[in-house]
C-alpha cells in the first residue's frame, strides 16, 4: 500500500472513531433542547424549537449556583491544602537525609496503593466523630489527607533538581527557614505545582463516592451529587435530566478548553514520575 493510501485510510478511520466518540455528547446536547414528546418521536434530528425552559428548570432543580459554590469550596480547600502542605513536606523530606525522614517518606508512598474502598468505612466513622461529616469544609480537609501522598511524591522528586546553593545563600542573607521556602523555593516549584493542582482538581471535582458518604444535607451537595439526585428522582423526565447533564459537564469542558495543554502535560508528568 502506498504511503498516501495509508494516510487517507488512517484519517478516515480516526474520523469515524471520533464521530462515534462524540456521538453520545452530541445526542445529549441536541436533545436537551427538545420537549419530551420530540425526544421520543425524533431523537436524531435537530430540535425544531429550542426549549430553553429545560435549562431554567434544571438550573433550579440542581440548585446550580449553590452546587457550584459547594464544589468550588471543596476543590479550593482540598487543592490549596494539598499543594501547600505537600510542597512543604516534600521539600523538607527531600532535603533531610536520614532514617526518620526516609521512614516518613516511605509511609506516604506505601499508602498510595491503598484503595479508597478499603478505608471508606473507618473514614466515615472518623469524619462523624470529628464532626466533619456533612460539611463542605470538612470534605475539603479530608481530600487533603487523602491527596498529600502523591503530591509529596511528586514534589520530593522535583526538589532534587533545584540547587541547594539558592537556599544556602538566602539563609546567609538572614532569611529564616520558612521565609526561604516561601520566597525562594515555592515559586521555583511552579511547574510541578501546576501539574499537581490540575490532577487533583480533576479528581476532587469529579469524585462521587466520598461526597456521597460525607454530605448528608442537600444544601451542601456538590454539583455531581446534585445531578445524581436529580437523575434518581426524575428518572423519565429526559429534557430535565439532559439539560442538567449539560450544565454539569460545561464547567469541566470549559476548563479543558483553557488548560488542555497543561492537563495533558500534567498527566504525562504525573504518570512518568509515578
Amino acid at each position: 500500500m502506498s504511503v498516501r493510501a495509508t494516510n487517507v485510510l488512517t484519517t478516515v478511520l480516526l474520523s469515524l472513531l471520533a464521530i462515534l466518540s462524540f456521538f453520545p455528547v452530541y445526542m445529549v446536547l441536541i436533545n436537551s433542547f427538545k420537549s419530551q414528546a420530540e425526544i421520543f418521536s425524533s431523537i436524531l434530528s435537530l430540535p425544531t424549537q429550542l426549549h430553553f425552559e429545560n435549562y431554567a428548570q434544571a438550573f433550579q432543580r440542581i440548585n446550580l449556583l449553590n452546587s457550584v459554590k459547594n464544589s468550588v469550596i471543596v476543590s479550593f480547600i482540598g487543592i490549596g491544602g494539598i499543594v501547600f502542605l505537600a510542597a512543604m513536606a516534600g521539600y523538607k523530606l527531600s532535603r533531610t537525609p536520614g532514617k526518620v525522614s526516609n521512614i516518613i517518606f516511605f509511609l506516604f508512598i506505601a499508602s498510595m496503593l491503598v484503595p479508597f474502598h478499603s478505608i471508606m468505612i473507618p473514614l466515615t466513622r472518623m469524619a462523624r466523630s470529628l464532626e466533619l461529616q456533612g460539611s463542605t469544609y470538612g470534605l475539603g480537609i479530608i481530600y487533603i489527607g487523602l491527596g498529600v501522598n502523591m503530591a509529596i511524591f511528586l514534589y520530593h522528586g522535583f526538589v532534587k533538581s533545584i540547587p541547594r546553593e539558592l537556599e544556602e545563600s538566602a539563609q546567609m542573607d538572614g532569611c529564616g527557614e520558612f521565609q526561604t521556602f516561601f520566597r525562594i523555593i515555592f515559586p521555583l516549584l511552579l511547574p510541578i505545582t501546576v501539574t499537581i493542582a490540575i490532577l487533583n482538581f480533576l479528581w476532587v471535582w469529579n469524585d462521587f463516592l466520598l461526597p456521597l458518604l460525607m454530605l448528608t444535607d442537600v444544601e451542601r451537595y456538590t454539583l455531581i451529587l446534585a445531578t445524581n439526585m436529580l437523575f434518581g428522582e426524575y428518572t423519565k423526565e429526559w429534557p430535565l435530566i439532559l439539560a442538567s447533564l449539560v450544565l454539569t459537564a460545561i464547567p469541566v469542558v470549559i476548563i479543558y478548553g483553557f488548560f488542555q495543554r497543561f492537563i495533558m502535560e500534567g498527566i504525562t508528568e504525573g504518570a512518568v514520575k509515578g
Binding site: 512543604m88 523538607k92 478499603s118 468505612i121 472518623m126 489527607g145 498529600v148
Partner: peptide, 28 residues
Amino acid sequence: KKYMSLLAFVGPAFILYFIFLMLPTLGG
C-alpha cells in the same frame, strides 16, 4: 534543630494523612 524543622514542615501534612488515611487503613 533538625528534627524541629522537619516537624514544622512535614507535621501538618502528616497529621492529616495520619488521621484520614493511615488510621482508617489500620482501622479497617
